[in-house]
Simulated assay, not measured.
Amino acid sequence: MATVHRTTLTPGKLELLTGWLPTRSWYVGDAEKPDLVRAGGFRLDDPEGEVGIEVMVVADVSAREPVAYLVPMGYRGAPLEGAPDEALIGTSEHGVLGTRWIYDGVHDPVVVAQLRALLLGRATPQHQSESDTPDTTVTVLGTGSDDGSGLRITRVLRAEDAVEGSAARLVAGWTWPDGAPARGVFAALAPE
C-alpha cells in the first residue's frame, strides 16, 4: 500500500489546480481565478508502486453557490511519455520524493487502469491522508465486466442518490465548505 508522506509540496495541489482548472472545458465557474478548498477524495495504489494516484474533490467558493470538481491525479517521478500538453497540471517539489510531474488522471494510463480496477472490484480505495487505511466510504454499485466498456469520469459533481441501473458506478462523498456532507457518482463504466 502507498505511503502518505507528511511533508511539503511546493507549489501545493490547490495552487496548481487554481491555475489549471479555469483552462478546462468543463469548468463552470466564471472567475478567472477560482477560490479552491479541499472537499474530499481518496487514493488508489499503483500495483507497480511508481505512480501516486489521488482522486481529489475541490470546491470552488468564488461564486454564490460553491461548485465541486473531481480531479483524479497521477503523481510521477518523470514526465509521462506521449501525454498531451493539456494533461500536465504542473510540477511540484515534494519534500521527500523530489520533483513530481502531476497529471490529470484521465490522461494517465495507470490512473485510468486503477479506476477501472476499482469499478470491477479489483482495487481497494485508500484513505486520502492516512497510509495503509482502506476508505470504506467509497462504494461501487452495480456490476461491471472487462468487456472494453469506456470509463466516464464525472468532473462537476452533484449531490445525488446513486442512479438506478446495472452498470458499475463509483459513489463517494465530499464535504461542502459549510460542512454539509454530500455523495454522488464519481465515475462509471459505460459501453463504448
Rank of each mutant, 00 (worst) to 15 (best):
S149Q: 11
L9E: 10
A188N: 03
A68F: 01
T137M: 12
M73V: 11
V171A: 06
T139Y: 01
V163I: 12
P72W: 05
V51C: 07
P134L: 09
S62K: 06
D135I: 04
G95P: 04
K13Y: 07
A187D: 02
E65R: 15
G12D: 15
E48V: 02
W26F: 15
Y75I: 05
W101C: 06
R6A: 12
R122W: 09
A83T: 09
P84L: 10
A168S: 13
V71A: 02
R116Q: 01
D60H: 08
Y103L: 09
Y69N: 03
G184S: 06
L80W: 05
P109L: 07
R76H: 05
S92F: 02
E164Y: 04
L14W: 01
L118R: 09
G148I: 09
L88W: 04
H5S: 05
T3W: 05
V140E: 04
P11R: 00
P79F: 07
G184H: 01
L70Y: 07
G40C: 10
V96T: 14
W176C: 02
V156T: 13
D132V: 11
S25M: 04
Q126N: 11
S92M: 09
T143N: 08
W26H: 12
A187M: 06
V55T: 07
R100E: 07
L157M: 15
S166H: 13
Q126D: 09
S129F: 14
S129A: 14
T8R: 11
H94V: 06
V110M: 00
R24Q: 15
T91C: 11
V171M: 10
A190V: 14
A168L: 08
V4Y: 04
T137E: 15
L16V: 08
I89Q: 05
E130M: 12
G29S: 12
V163G: 14
L157C: 06
H107A: 12
P79I: 10
W20Q: 01
E93Y: 04
T10N: 10
L157T: 00
T8W: 08
R64Q: 12
P177T: 08
P72E: 07
R152E: 14
V156L: 06
G144Y: 00
E130A: 14
A123D: 09
V111S: 03
R122A: 13
V156Y: 03
P191C: 02
T99Q: 13
V163S: 15
T124R: 10
M1L: 11
V4E: 00
Q114I: 05
D108L: 03
E130K: 15
V112A: 06
G150C: 10
W101S: 05
A63M: 14
R169N: 03
R122Q: 14
P177I: 09
V156D: 04
L170W: 11
L17R: 03
L16A: 04
R38T: 13
G144V: 03
G52R: 02
A68G: 08
L189K: 03
T136A: 15
E164S: 12
K13R: 13
L17T: 01
A188D: 00
A190W: 03
A68N: 01
V57A: 10
L118P: 03
M73S: 08
G49H: 10
E130P: 04
T23R: 15
H5W: 14
